[in-house]
Every structure is written in structure tokens, then in C-alpha cells.
């Protein structure tokens, strides 16, 4: 049932965002702290081997939120460590995540070239 997949993605992804909102509203964390906390949480879950089952269950509901970035960091590090030993921990972290990081830099650069930030005027 494809509908169940959509529903799970919606609910799990939404719940991750609820945690983020609670960190800001109740935990009084700044947006930057909230972001880092979720990345670290994703990374720890990946280390415990719990993030992949979450992706299998929720699909994009688990891969779109920023926790997935933490997961990618850890997963990459473990995979490369198995091949190349301890150096792999360092190289592996950015092997999987390099596309995301490069995309952020390149698109950020292009956006900064084209647009001028404006406040709310109406």
C-alpha cells in the first residue's frame, strides 16, 4: 500500500520536526543549537544502527530532516573505517555528505550573487 508509505513518511518526518520545535520553544535553544542537536542525535542513532531501520520504515520522512545528515556522517565514517582503518573515519565522514555540503555552498553562492536580502515591507 503506497498510501501507508506516504502516511509513515509524513508522521515520522513530522515527529522529528516536532522534536526540533520543542527544543526551541521548551528547551529555549537557539535555531543553531537546535540544528546541531538534531545532527548529533542522527549521528548517534546511526552509530547504534537505529537510523537505517527508521529510513526503511519512513523513507523520505527520515532522509529529509537534518538528522539524516548526522546519519550520513556516521554511516560514511564506519564504511570507510572498515576499508581503510582509522584514516577512513576522517575521509568517510565527508564522502557521503560531500554532495550536500557542496550543494549548500554552490547554491548559497549563486543566491548571494543574484539576490539582495530584504526585510518584511508589507
Amino acid at each position: 500500500m503506497i498510501f501507508i508509505d506516504f502516511l509513515l513518511a509524513f508522521v515520522i518526518g513530522g515527529l522529528i520536526c516536532v522534536i526540533g520545535q520543542l527544543l526551541m520553544d521548551v528547551g529555549k535553544l537557539t535555531p543553531a543549537h537546535t540544528l546541531s542537536t538534531l545532527v548529533v542525535a542522527g549521528s548517534i542513532l546511526a552509530g547504534l544502527g537505529w537510523y537505517q531501520p527508521l529510513i526503511d520504515l519512513a523513507g523520505a520522512g527520515a532522509t529529509i530532516p537534518i538528522t539524516s545528515f548526522g546519519n550520513a556522517l556516521t554511516t560514511g565514517a564506519i564504511a570507510e573505517a572498515e576499508k581503510h582503518g582509522w584514516v577512513g573515519v576522517l575521509t568517510g565522514m565527508f564522502e557521503v555528505t560531500s554532495s550536500g555540503i557542496s550543494a549548500a555552498i554552490v547554491f548559497g553562492f549563486i543566491a548571494a550573487l543574484i539576490f539582495k536580502p530584504k526585510g518584511k515591507v508589507n
Partner: peptide, 20 residues
């Protein structure tokens, strides 16, 4: 002036941080 003061005390306006 809104933009310069928000940047000074909180976040730059284009950062789009949420407010309580």
C-alpha cells in the same frame, strides 16, 4: 531601523529565525 537592529541584537533578517 528594523533590519540593522535585528542583526545587531538577534539574527540577520535573512536568516529567518523563529520568534516566540
Amino acid at each position: 531601523q528594523h533590519n540593522s537592529i535585528e542583526r545587531q541584537f538577534r539574527y540577520p533578517v535573512d536568516y529567518g529565525g523563529q520568534k516566540p
